[in-house]
């Protein structure tokens, strides 16, 4: 088990794209805090910022591109063609000949992803919240540990969501495009909440309620419930992905 997880860690961290995800995901949120500092100061001074305990935690959202990239490429790298000489050849062949028990393989792969993303989330959260304290310390309460843990869990579950979707699609381009657009350009899930309250239970919307309080969520959901709902989404998608992975020919 340990050797398989080690192999999966090496595989993931040996990909240049993984490092793009790691660097982008870790640095974007602290950078936004820095860039927004003058605006935030004015807002605090003017009294328009009501709940300052969300500061920093809210900025963490932009870093989610990191876990999304990591979750997608952990799977899609198995399916990309390895060379122009052999268009059908993929890394998956090497992976499955080395670890033929597919369930064990998925457990190791998932564990490696969780380790990497949880570590990244911890670093990003520490940097973002630490910077927020340094810049606006007088006005911002120290973040509650439970909310920080919620944010780290949100990052990890987001990575697993991307990972599970890619297990189903076996191609990274579609899930990555959809997920990144949804989290940056136009949040389709957020727009849906304007139409139906049910959309509040979509994974990305509900998950944010684990650690963000003061946003215009149409339905207020307790952090614990929010965590459980998002976990359920991830569990169901992972189960579908795992069953397909077991059944399909490689």
């Amino acid at each position: 088990m340990v050797s398989r997880v080690r192999a999966e860690l090496r595989k993931l961290l040996g990909l240049p794209t993984a490092w793009v995800g790691l660097v982008l995901g870790t640095l974007t949120a602290p950078a936004i805090v820095l860039l927004n500092a003058p605006y935030t100061r004015r807002a605090i001074a003017a009294g328009t910022l009501t709940d300052t305990s969300d500061l920093g935690l809210r900025d963490l959202g932009v870093g989610l591109i990191g876990p999304m990239v990591l979750g997608v490429i952990a799977v899609s790298s198995e399916y990309t063609s390895t060379s122009q000489h052999a268009p059908g050849a993929r890394q998956l062949t090497a992976t499955l000949t080395a670890v033929p028990d597919r369930l064990r393989l998925l457990v190791a792969k998932t564990a490696a992803l969780v380790l990497v993303v949880a570590a990244q989330a911890a670093v990003a959260a520490t940097a973002t919240l630490g910077l927020t304290q340094v810049l606006h310390g007088d006005h911002v309460p120290a973040p509650a540990p439970a909310r920080v843990a919620g944010a780290i869990l949100y990052w990890t579950l987001t990575a697993l969501l991307a990972y599970a979707i890619t297990l189903i699609t076996r191609n990274g381009i579609v899930p990555l495009t959809l997920l990144v657009i949804n989290s940056t350009v136009v949040s389709v899930s957020y727009l849906l909440t304007k139409i139906t309250d049910l959309a509040s239970y979509l994974p990305d919307i509900v998950g944010a309620q684990m650690f963000i309080r003061d946003a215009d969520f149409p339905v207020e959901i307790a952090p614990l419930t929010a965590g459980l709902v998002m976990t359920a989404w991830v569990a169901v998608l992972l189960a579908i992905g795992a069953v397909l992975f077991q059944r399909r020919d490689a």
Binding site: E8, R10, K11, L15, T80, G88, A89, R90, A94
Partner: peptide, 17 residues
């Protein structure tokens, strides 16, 4: 067919994982 190594990996990195 093919080497089974991801394009972006060096030969040694592939063999090590």
């Amino acid at each position: 067919d093919g080497s089974g190594a991801h394009r972006a990996r060096t030969a040694r990195a592939h063999l090590r994982w």
